[in-house]
Design a protein around this nucleic acid. Sequence first.
DNA 1: GAAGGTACTTAACACTGTTAACCTACGGTA
DNA 2: TACCGTAGGTTAACAGTGTTAAGTACCTTC
Lengths: 199, 199
Amino acid sequence: MSLRSQILKVSRSILMEDGFSSLSMRKIAREIDVSATSIYLHFKNKDHLLLTLIEESVEELNRKILHLAESDAGPLEKISKIARGYVDFGLTQPQIYEVIFMLRPEEMPRYPKEKFRKARRGYEVLANVIRQGVKTEEIVEEDPLMSAYTIWAQLHGVISVIINRRLDTRIAEGEFIDHAIEHIVEGFLVSKSPAHLTR
Amino acid sequence: MSLRSQILKVSRSILMEDGFSSLSMRKIAREIDVSATSIYLHFKNKDHLLLTLIEESVEELNRKILHLAESDAGPLEKISKIARGYVDFGLTQPQIYEVIFMLRPEEMPRYPKEKFRKARRGYEVLANVIRQGVKTEEIVEEDPLMSAYTIWAQLHGVISVIINRRLDTRIAEGEFIDHAIEHIVEGFLVSKSPAHLTR
DNA sequence: GAAGGTACTTAACACTGTTAACCTACGGTA
DNA sequence: TACCGTAGGTTAACAGTGTTAAGTACCTTC
């Protein structure tokens, strides 16, 4: 097992167990029993290490979303499924999700910016599902990309609130997620369908 | 001017100009021309300093939301106005908003937890506007608190996406905000109103 | 066997939050 | 007036952080 992949593995486990704030170069090195500076032989700096970690997770997430989009359900159901899949990913891997979202592209060197575009594929898929629904006239929406983005932003809000423990204790987490997804998906559809209903 | 209020003032300006990551105790002290340890005579630690900073901003935000809720508009319009007011706050004071949302209550000592409840007043106000709309039968919603929370989470997502510069370059920021707010508010209403329409 | 490169090390720099110990000037009291 | 305590600072230090420069072993190729 190469040192590079050991670094990634250990980083991931520290992230999972102790969270982002206690992930340090020296701690990673200590757990592999190697000097901290060795990490710099395999990664330019800490940000690039995190970026690599992110890339793997984003690819996993994209595969998951693509899989959900390829199921033979109607567009509406697909959107619901994708929404739930996205929320699930965020909640089962909160530390990874946190890092994905916390890392700032503009604070990074030039070329990794390209890599951030990979993360966009997720809502390209969502936009395509919406376009598909527009074709079959199940959805009325003049700007699918904008809608995909809006849905995604709202889902991010839901995940973020839960991860950051800002959810009111009076509100049950599961119920909140259900309510929010229903709200996001239905809302986006029905808001465009008065013409549809009055037909 | 007391040292305590000088610390708060300088902290706020560093936060505004250089962002959260470059706000350090030594930097604050340097700008006031005082030793770094002096800060600890007025604040228990960095978290408590940030907490004080947050408290002031949260109170400002609450006043703003309360003011919008007290205008003599209909419940629907009020919800839109509150939504826009909240987004405006997040976008005009991104560093403050970031700190408000990044600071983790569970990583803080016991008593400041109480202070985090202040932040909740914002959606208590929103929940009351919804309840008011339910009374006048302009809104159909069986769980106003849950809805207020859902709206708030979604708005947070919108702000968060913009602040973290995750907005696709193909999408105009202003349009995105309009679309999202419309989506959040309309969606939440219309999704409950098929019974209303088919009456 | 000498040269060169690869993969690592140690030492160091400039930061970070935070604590302990010390100092000093002011106010109240014996 | 002399003492004492406290309020409000100070300096020195600890343990941690990311990162860089220089040095060292070993392995391959000429």
